[in-house]
Design a protein around this nucleic acid. Sequence first.
DNA 1: CTTCTAACA
DNA 2: TGTTAGTA
Length: 130
Amino acid sequence: MKGKELLRSRSVLPIGTVMKLTNLTARQIRYYEEQELVLPDRSEGNRRLYSLNDIDRLLEVKDYLDDGINMAGIKEIYRQRRQKQASKRHEENKPLTDSDLRRILHDEFMNLGGLDTPDQQSFRTHNPLM
DNA sequence: CTTCTAACA
DNA sequence: TGTTAGTA
């Protein structure tokens, strides 16, 4: 890891600063944490400490939400993102093709309850695999 | 004064 | 999500 990334992962920002930087309410920021969309560190006094990477993640979550994607959809996107990175690591022996991923994602998407029409459109719009 | 958890008129 | 109560 390079120094630059080390700084981005350094948790030092209190929730108040994060609120101003993201235009999100404390309620929303804490709720997204409850949904495991962001996992800030904690100070000795149990205060949340965010990193620049956390800020980016929150802004990203906010964008998806603005586009009509719900919590389930966002979690799904990150779940896939991690899965894709995992595949990229052992790409030596298990090179799952984009075509395969697309089929799998499509199946799971169709079985994902709670996603209304606008969500489905946004889902496709933001999913690099579709 | 700022943040935290829990709860709901 | 907003908001508020009672803390730390």
